Measured scan of single mutants.
Amino acid sequence: TTLHFDLDGKKLQYTGVSEEIARLVEELKRRGVDLKEIVRILEELLK
């Protein structure tokens, strides 16, 4: 799965993300978590 974000005018793309992580990101968005925080979490998970 590939995730795309537009953060402060920067286009971020994460490829090869598992379905689980993609679902987690969608859930965080639904809960109103700040996009910067979501990206920070995502980068930690993908290390």
Rank of each mutant, 00 (worst) to 15 (best):
T2E: 07
L3R: 00
H4S: 10
H4W: 12
F5W: 02
F5L: 05
F5M: 04
F5Q: 01
D6T: 08
D6A: 03
D6S: 04
L7E: 04
D8A: 04
G9R: 01
G9T: 02
G9K: 02
G9E: 04
K10I: 14
K10V: 13
K11I: 07
K11S: 12
K11W: 10
K11H: 15
L12A: 04
L12V: 15
Q13F: 13
Y14E: 00
Y14D: 00
T15K: 08
T15G: 06
T15N: 10
G16M: 07
G16D: 08
G16V: 04
G16N: 15
S18H: 05
S18T: 10
S18N: 10
E19D: 13
E19S: 08
E19C: 02
E20Y: 09
E20Q: 11
E20K: 09
E20W: 11
I21W: 07
I21H: 12
A22D: 03
A22N: 06
A22Q: 07
A22S: 09
A22V: 14
R23K: 11
L24A: 14
V25R: 00
V25H: 02
V25G: 01
V25Y: 04
E26H: 15
E26M: 15
E26D: 12
E27F: 15
L28W: 14
L28G: 02
L28R: 03
L28E: 04
K29G: 09
R30C: 04
R30P: 01
R30M: 13
R30S: 11
R30H: 10
R31V: 08
R31D: 07
G32P: 05
G32Y: 05
G32L: 08
V33G: 05
V33I: 12
V33P: 02
V33H: 06
V33W: 14
D34V: 10
L35I: 14
L35K: 06
L35F: 06
K36L: 11
K36P: 08
E37W: 07
E37I: 09
I38S: 01
I38T: 04
V39A: 03
V39K: 03
R40H: 09
R40G: 10
I41E: 07
I41K: 06
L42H: 00
E43R: 04
E44V: 11
E44H: 13
E44M: 14
L46D: 02
L46Y: 05
L46H: 05
K47Y: 15
K47L: 12
K47H: 11
K47G: 11
